[in-house]
Every structure is written in structure tokens, then in C-alpha cells.
Design a binder for these strands. Structure first.
Length: 286
DNA sequence: CGGAGTGTTAGTCG
DNA sequence: CCGACTAACACTCC
């Protein structure tokens, strides 16, 4: 489920509580979510310290003192819950209605830390994974990914060049392709294309130079706004600080099929583009 | 109850 | 080498 803004929010929250923590134990009740053999996980993780928490595309990147990084992908329904010894809890990822507290029936991996806190990985659909990679191999693992859209490397020119090799597909499929630009998913693809006034079904080869520029500008604007809002609707502190993740209230089109377009008032339409549910304004987007 | 839909992506098939 | 489609899985909604 989470896209760049949600994963970035989780990264910041976890960095604050996990940096410098030593792993004292690992518990796995669904081994298939591990991309390495379980003995490797135990050996690499137990006793090692987390030095920093980064993000690349939609993955979390936890650096370990053992010379490895732990990649965590939440896919559609993955959720990370950190809980202090005293009970303070923070949550990032897909909420499970009616399921509170950890561990619960969807908790498949648990890390225990030296200060008595725990990190729980819950995943209803079990698409997510944990993967250990030697730090020396990290660049290879990430090499297929396109640029980070909020980094300097993502320029109008780099987007134009990446799109040039995919002229026959729809612009929405291109934006969802992590090799073109890393971190955009279904929500922010629709949001960005609405802001750029470009139809999601438009063939990449038919885009004007101006439209490519508008898409580039819109991607950055939408993602910056969403990061500032802590993502969409699901990242929630449970310690009395209140809810977070307010992009849902700011969204322009996602989940608004049948509602009036904020720009022209005509009704937003639902369609299927690139195999995904898609919302757009037929009047504003061309 | 059946069927469609869900924030992802790796793999297959033409 | 594309680009479209589907499976992986569990749950909600109509």
C-alpha cells in the first residue's frame, strides 16, 4: 500500500526510535516473508545495531553494524508497529480494522531491542518481505530503480529521457514503472496527472514537451505536499498525540470518482489504465 | 453469497 | 525487447 510519502514518514519515525538500538532477538512465524534463509537472518541480525534508517523507492533500508542492510517492503498491506517497553506505540502502514495491539494474528516477524522495545511486522495479505543484503551489494540491488523524484537527480531532462524509451505505453503505466521514477504508486500517479492536466491513458509518445514538464513539476509538488502531510490516512501515532497522515483530506481525485472536479466541476470518472483503478477528469485532462 | 475491488510487483505470455 | 495480464493473499463492500 504505501507509496513514497508514506514510506518516508515511516522512515523518519523509525529512525528516531531505532537508531543505535541493538537487536536482541528475532521471532518469525511466517518464514516465507523472509527473502533469505532464517539462519542467515538470525546470524546477521541478532547482536547487531541499527545505525540508520533510510528509504529507497518504497522500501525501508535499515543499516546494520554487521555490514548488511535490511530491506523492508510493505507492498499492499504491510505494517510496522514499534512499541516502547513502557507501551508507547507508533504505527506505519496499512491499518487493520478492528485489530489493535501487537502482536496480533497478522504479526509475522518481531524484533526485540536492547531497551525493551519491539518492532512488529504485520501483513494481512503477506505480500511484503524482509531481505538482507550485504552493504557491498546494495548498489546492484537498487540499480534497476529510476531516480528519487524529490532528489536533484530527477530532472525534466531525466524524465524526458526515461519516457523516450517507453513511447508506446500510457503515461500512467510509465509513472508506475519504478525504472522510470522510483516511489510513485496508484494514488500519486493519479494525483500528479490530474495536477498536470494530462490524461492517464495518454500515450507517452503523444505527450508534448510542455506536458512532460508539467508532469515533472506536478510529481514533485504532489509528493512534497504528501510528505508534509505525513502521507495518506494510515500512519498513526497511538500514544495520545493524535492521528497523522492527512493527505487523504487533501487529495484531488483519488477515491473521488463521481464527485465534482475541483477545477471545472464536471464529474470525475473511473476507468482502468495500466490494469489499475484510475480516476480522472475528462474535461480537464488531455 | 458471488464478484469486484484494494495503496505492489515479479513473472509469464504473446 | 516491449506491453498487457495475472498470481501471490486476505479482506471489504455491494
Amino acid at each position: 500500500m504505501p507509496e513514497l510519502p508514506e514510506v518516508e514518514t515511516i522512515r523518519r519515525d523509525l529512525q528516531a526510535v531505532l537508531k543505535g538500538r541493538r537487536v536482541v532477538s528475532l521471532r518469525v512465524t511466517r518464514p516465507k516473508l523472509l527473502r533469505n534463509p532464517r539462519p542467515v537472518f538470525t546470524k546477521v541480525m541478532v547482536g547487531s545495531t541499527i545505525s540508520k534508517v533510510e528509504r529507497r523507492a518504497k522500501q525501508l533500508v535499515l543499516h546494520l553494524s554487521s555490514g548488511f542492510v535490511l530491506l523492508i517492503h510493505l507492498k499492499m498491506t504491510g505494517q510496522l508497529v514499534w512499541q516502547a517497553k513502557a507501551g508507547k506505540m507508533l504505527v506505519g502502514g496499512h491499518p487493520v480494522s478492528g485489530v489493535t495491539g501487537v502482536p496480533n494474528r497478522y504479526t509475522y516477524i518481531t524484533l526485540a531491542f536492547d531497551n525493551g522495545s519491539h518492532l512488529y511486522f504485520n501483513d494481512v495479505r503477506q505480500f511484503g518481505y524482509w531481505r538482507l543484503v550485504p552493504i557491498s551489494k546494495l548498489a546492484d540491488v537498487f540499480s534497476p530503480l529510476g531516480p528519487e523524484p524529490l532528489a536533484r537527480e530527477f530532472t525534466r531532462e531525466s524524465l524526458k529521457a526515461a519516457l523516450a524509451r517507453r513511447s508506446r505505453t500510457s503515461i500512467k503505466a510509465a509513472l508506475l514503472d519504478q525504472r522510470v521514477v522510483a516511489g510513485i504508486g496508484n494514488i500519486y500517479a493519479d494525483e500528479s496527472l490530474f495536477l498536470a492536466r494530462v490524461s492517464p491513458a495518454k500515450r507517452v509518445g503523444d505527450l508534448s514537451a510542455r506536458q512532460v514538464t508539467d508532469i515533472w513539476t506536478s510529481i514533485r509538488a504532489v509528493l512534497k505536499k504528501a510528505v508534509a502531510a505525513r502521507g495518506t490516512s494510515f500512519s498513526t501515532y497511538r500514544d495520545g498525540l493524535g492521528r497523522s497522515g492527512t493527505y487523504w483530506d487533501k487529495r484531488l481525485v483519488y477515491g473521488r470518482a463521481g464527485e465534482p472536479c475541483v477545477r471545472c466541476g464536471s464529474l470525475l470518472r473511473r476507468s482502468v489504465v495500466a490494469g489499475r483503478g484510475t480516476v480522472s477528469c475528462r474535461h480537464c485532462q488531455h
